[in-house]
Simulated assay, not measured.
Amino acid sequence: MAAGGEAGLKRAHFRQVRLPALLLLPQLAILLLFFFIPSFRALTQAFLLSDPFGNTVHFAGLDNFTQLLASESYRESVQVTVVFTIAQNAFTMAVALVLAFASDRVIRGRELYKAVILLPYAIAPVIAGILWAFLFNPAVGPLAQLLHAAGFEWDPNRRGADAMLLVVLAASWKHICYDYIFLLAGLLAIPASLIEAAAVDGARPLRRFFSVCLPLLGPTVFFLAVMNFVYGFFEVFAIVDAVTRGGPAGATNVLVYKVFTDGFVNLDLGSSAAQSVILMAFALLMTLLQFRYVERRVNYDV
């Protein structure tokens, strides 16, 4: 019986390289066309100096990087990106935790409750940005009118803090459902015996959540923190473009949007390529630091 089982396992492996190569070919072609070739072009362009039409190209060495690091606008964009990413990460995680905790408390209409929370994930980022830009438009937005009626001076077109808050809310609203899915799955995976034991000891629902559930969600929270970080650095271009276009006065000009404006609007291809290389290196560095120093505090034991 054991020999037959081992033979069956051996037959499950591919005996020739041709079939697995053909199965991998579509994915490899996509990676080659949309990742490796653009990455190689960006890396080479970062060391070149060319005119807007690419007719004259000169090797510039590290000049693009030195000029970029000496630029005041680039340093301001770095600060804006860090503030936006931290705020978006914290707000998204906090709201997703509350919604996931509330899912266990909902008795009637639980499926409808989950469907409503997951709905924003099906909306395109540019549509989400346009929706939030309309709702908080200082002239015609209904929510902006409520803020004005309450005595708040709301104007994201002229006030940088208001614009940053609006972009954070729009980006978080679009991404909360992603965190909610993983946090809810993590809560459902917690053994019911632990929660029941805490209830027998007299712990209230909030106490059970913070003392029992939240520590066991450590791996999930750590994973989502990394994913939210990547989202804040690379996947908010459409929202920023639809809501503020980097304004006012660069208050929401995050790095990924600055790469676009410098490369495709200002036609400074060398600087744009250098920015993309620095952005990728910075994101990799921050991710490695998170795994190096934050993961130590994560408890994977259930």
Rank of each mutant, 00 (worst) to 15 (best):
A2H: 10
A3T: 12
G8D: 14
L31W: 08
L32R: 13
F35Y: 14
G54T: 09
T56W: 07
V57F: 06
A60V: 07
F65P: 00
T66I: 15
A70F: 07
A70P: 04
E72N: 08
E72H: 10
E76G: 13
S77C: 05
T81N: 01
V83E: 03
F84V: 01
F84D: 00
N89M: 13
A96V: 00
I107R: 15
R108A: 11
Y113G: 01
V116S: 14
L118E: 09
L119W: 06
A122T: 07
A122F: 04
P125I: 02
F134P: 00
L135Q: 04
N137H: 13
P138H: 05
Q145M: 09
L147I: 05
E153H: 10
N157K: 10
R158D: 14
R159K: 12
G160A: 11
A161M: 11
A163D: 03
L166H: 02
L169P: 00
A170H: 01
Y180N: 00
L188M: 14
I190F: 09
P205S: 05
L206W: 14
R208N: 05
R208I: 08
F210I: 12
L214I: 09
L216A: 07
G218I: 02
G218T: 03
A225V: 11
M227Y: 07
A238T: 02
R245Q: 08
G247T: 06
G250F: 06
T252A: 00
T252F: 01
K258C: 03
F264D: 12
D268L: 11
A273P: 02
S276T: 14
S276L: 10
L279M: 12
A281F: 12
A283W: 07
L284P: 06
M286E: 11
F291V: 09
R292S: 09
Y293G: 01
R297L: 13
